[in-house]
Design a protein around this nucleic acid. Structure first.
Length: 277
DNA sequence: CTTAACGCCTGAAGGC
DNA sequence: TGCCTTCAGGCGTTAA
């Protein structure tokens, strides 16, 4: 499940492979990912476009072409990219490839997505990009500070864990890092968001940045599905203290076992000793 | 405005 | 072995 560190890693790698390359043709192997156009529009949109830059915003990937057209893609749960050089359909075809971008010199980029939750949308220059409006501030943005977070949360009764998952509150945090952040600062995941004081918001912000930065250094977390380009795994799973660690001893207090609860239909892992109510 | 529940999807894993 | 159920979860939609 790609979150900010995983998407950042993919964006950096894609840039290296794709910058300056031209899309000669596209095979739409499944139309479900196309969110704001049909198959023929999508093919038309991409043909002869040269990749200029690939960036990340929240958990979205922004593909910018030289023409200033943009393609915005979300990997959701199981989306990943495969770069083939050269691409041989006999060898490289896989069942769950959904979009295939054919490049020069027999190279190709495949968007692979088992569960087909991933989405792509296309934008012509100078048009209003809806995706921007849906996501909140980047965790590393200098506009963020503890006072703003506290203010934004003052009427929010939802558990802090759920608020950290809200992409409009802070962009890019998913289930894994939300659990890790709360453990690192010793806050119970069910604590009502509006009850955190300024000092606690300071800790949230500092640890969020620290953990995400460290996870980017490790090229993300690979538990089940996540793979970067070239099927490369991340290594941050070695640093996880609570996520997926049910019944293990907490690495911080070394005495209490990590427990698992459900919040808003999602698993939350935490240490009841280090994160008291 | 906020919150909660559901649906989308497939493959892995567990129960019997 | 095989069938059935449950689970994984990001996010859009819907309803309250």
């Amino acid at each position: 499940m790609p979150e900010l560190p995983e998407v950042e890693t993919i964006a950096r790698d894609l840039n290296q492979f794709l910058r300056g390359k031209v899309v000669q043709n596209v095979n739409v192997l499944h139309t479900k990912p196309l969110s704001n156009c049909n198959e023929s529009e999508f093919i038309q949109f991409c043909q002869q476009e040269k990749f200029k830059n690939i960036t990340r915003a929240g958990k979205y990937l922004f593909f910018e072409f030289e023409s200033e057209k943009k393609m915005i893609l979300h990997l959701r749960m199981t989306g990943k990219f495969q770069f083939f050089s050269p691409y041989d359909p006999e060898v490289n075809f896989e069942k769950h490839q959904r979009l295939l971008f054919l490049l020069k010199n027999q190279e190709a980029l495949a968007f692979h997505d088992v569960r087909i939750f991933g989405t792509v949308s296309i934008y012509y220059p100078h048009t209003n990009i809806l995706e921007y409006k849906k996501i909140g501030p980047e965790p590393f943005s200098s506009e963020l500070n503890p006072a703003i977070l506290k203010e934004q949360a003052k009427n929010r009764k939802v558990p802090i864990k759920n608020l950290l998952l809200d992409q409009k509150f802070i962009a890019g945090i998913g289930n894994i890092y939300a659990c890790e952040i709360l453990h690192a600062i010793g806050i119970h995941p069910a604590k009502p968001s509006s009850s955190l004081n300024l000092e606690e918001w300071q800790k949230v912000l500092t640890k969020t940045r620290e953990i995400l930065k460290e996870a980017i250094r490790a090229r993300g977390t690979t538990i089940n599905d996540y793979r970067g380009l070239a099927e490369k795994k991340g290594s941050y799973q070695k640093h996880l203290k609570v996520y997926n660690q049910e019944n293990q001893s907490c690495p911080t207090c070394k005495t209490t076992k990590i427990i698992r609860i459900k919040q808003a239909q999602r698993s939350t892992f935490f240490c009841p000793a280090c994160q008291p109510e």
